[in-house]
């Protein structure tokens, strides 16, 4: 490609494409589009490149192509290398560094090729060469890369808790698509929610930084976090530090989910991470329901029953694959 229009012009071209393909497109829209396109060479070029990109889909059989892309891009659990299964609970008292990230949409190939991975509902303890220890939570994939100068963990999806063995010469870095958490001392937590990565510190100091982006020449931003402080890194920004509840952040290592006056929809979404079958509900039905309690993660059926005891909800086991949550 000889000519690269600016991101703003591409966004505009995409906007026009969508508008022109809407059911309610009017002649006035088309005329306005033509004006925009003729206004500048870059506009015409951006629109042409967009159409060329879309033309790649021509000639594919819709249903098979859809299925192939869904499978290729979805991180379906397909079994993984196992080290030790998590026997009982992990003593939180000895935790030096904890890091975790909630599932990011990664592709299946990346998941399958990861050095370590767990399936839905599975946890695993990995002992590293430097005596650091990592606990993988449900449906997690990570690579371990130790070099002469640093210890780097790449978290493709899921959540990990890291206990870092001290080595002043080699920093310990956990990297996600959004940024990095670098242990300056020995204790910290990272958690990924939706399109963001959360970082929280258990003890000592961590430097959390956003990842450099394409087309964004700005300096990467970093925030220094102390014990019981956290931040959130997204595609575009990193937030200032804020206090975090360490007990709920590390509860999964002991096999429980501690919730304190949390929205039911959020709790169900969290339980879903540990359950192969889907938990279905209408967000409007349960919008004003909140719950506090400690739920078992290794038996999500039991966790759902406990919620039904606490709240006016009914659980329908509609099929082997899914359960439906209804208000009573």
């Amino acid at each position: 490609m000889d000519f690269k229009p600016s991101p703003e012009v591409i966004e505009r071209a995409a906007y026009w494409h969508v508008r022109l393909h809407a059911e309610d497109v009017a002649d006035a829209d088309r005329a306005e589009f033509e004006r925009w396109r003729n206004q500048h060479e870059a506009h015409a070029e951006a629109y042409a490149q967009l159409q060329a990109m879309l033309a790649k889909f021509d000639g594919l059989q819709p249903a098979p192509a859809m299925k192939a892309l869904e499978v290729a891009l979805q991180s379906a659990p397909t079994g993984g290398r196992r080290r030790k299964s998590l026997a009982g609970s992990v003593a939180l008292g000895i935790v030096l560094v904890a890091a975790g990230a909630l599932a990011v949409q990664t592709d299946k190939a990346r998941y399958m090729l990861a050095d370590y991975r767990t399936e839905v509902g599975q946890q695993q303890v990995v002992e590293l060469a430097d005596d650091s220890r990592i606990i993988l939570n449900t449906y997690t994939a990570m690579d371990v890369d130790f070099s002469e100068t640093e210890r780097r963990i790449t978290l493709h999806q899921g959540e990990i808790l890291v206990e870092v063995a001290g080595d002043a010469a080699k920093p310990f870095i956990v990297e996600t698509a959004h940024g990095t958490a670098r242990a300056l001392g020995t204790q910290f937590i990272v958690k990924r929610v939706g399109d963001a990565t959360d970082v929280a510190v258990v003890e000592s100091v961590v430097e959390a930084c956003s990842a450099p982006r394409i087309f964004n020449k700005a300096e990467k931003q970093c925030v220094r976090l102390h014990a019981a402080e956290g931040t959130q890194i997204t595609k575009d920004s990193i937030l200032a530090s804020r206090p975090v509840d360490l007990e709920s952040a590390t509860g999964w290592t002991a096999g429980f989910l501690a919730v304190d006056d949390q929205r039911l929809a959020e709790v169900l979404a969290e339980l879903q991470r540990y359950r192969k079958g889907s938990i279905r509900f209408n967000p409007d039905d349960i919008a004003d329901m909140r719950v506090s309690g400690v739920l078992p993660l290794k038996d999500t059926d039991r966790a759902l029953e406990m919620l039904a005891e606490l709240l006016p909800i009914r659980i329908d086991h509609s099929s082997a694959e899914s359960v439906d949550i209804h208000p009573r």
Binding site: I10, E11, A14, H17, A46, Q49, L50, M53, I214, F215
Partner: peptide, 11 residues
């Protein structure tokens, strides 16, 4: 629109 922009950038 968001996906189209992403795809162009990725290309």
């Amino acid at each position: 629109a968001q996906v189209m922009v992403h795809c162009c950038m990725a290309s």
